[in-house]
Write a protein that binds this DNA or RNA. Sequence first.
DNA 1: TGCCAGGCCCTCTTTAGGGCCTT
Length: 203
Amino acid sequence: MKQRLAVIDFETTGITPGPGCRATEIGIVLLEDGQIVDRYQSLMNAGVRVPAMIEQLTGISNAMLRSAPPVAQVMREAADFVGSTPLVAHNASFDSKFWDYELAQLGRSRPQAFACTLLLSRRLLPQAPDHKLGTLTRWAGLPATGRAHRALADAEMAANLLLHLGVTLRQRHGRGAVDHGLLCKLQKVPAAKVAQYLRELPA
DNA sequence: TGCCAGGCCCTCTTTAGGGCCTT
């Protein structure tokens, strides 16, 4: 059976989802057995203004969103694209809040768990200078994927980081990497106890 | 008007505080 994972990234108008703070763009990368096999990306218009600071950060302007498809249409397509495929994001506590909020506007809910490349990289790459997605990408020598802080480029960066974490797991601990269940368990293990946890995993 | 997150992790900790990370 093929191991599929959906790596997602949102651009938004702020930090906490709500009536005045919505998603503006989503990028999704589908991985199958360690290869990118499909992508989804769209801007979305939720009828909220993009603050100047966010426009500067992402390059996503109010003018771009005026001509973007409605948020409900985009989120329906995104949710259908992902289906029940296990999810991954960098700092998943952020993207999962927006994923859940936007799905709730459609009367839908999320059936699957999120794995988090931020939590995993803190455990498996503690020697990195920091654990920002861009820093980890440069530090690990991973490919440039486009403009940072655009959804598909960031989702591809996170996907490449996930694959790198898999290589790290195999090299250092003799464990296969992209088993979503293992990743979800590993990201909850206290950082100081990760080595012990991996040693004690059944072969 | 003024306010503005929250989970994780470390340590000069646990009766707490502050930095990290996402936009």
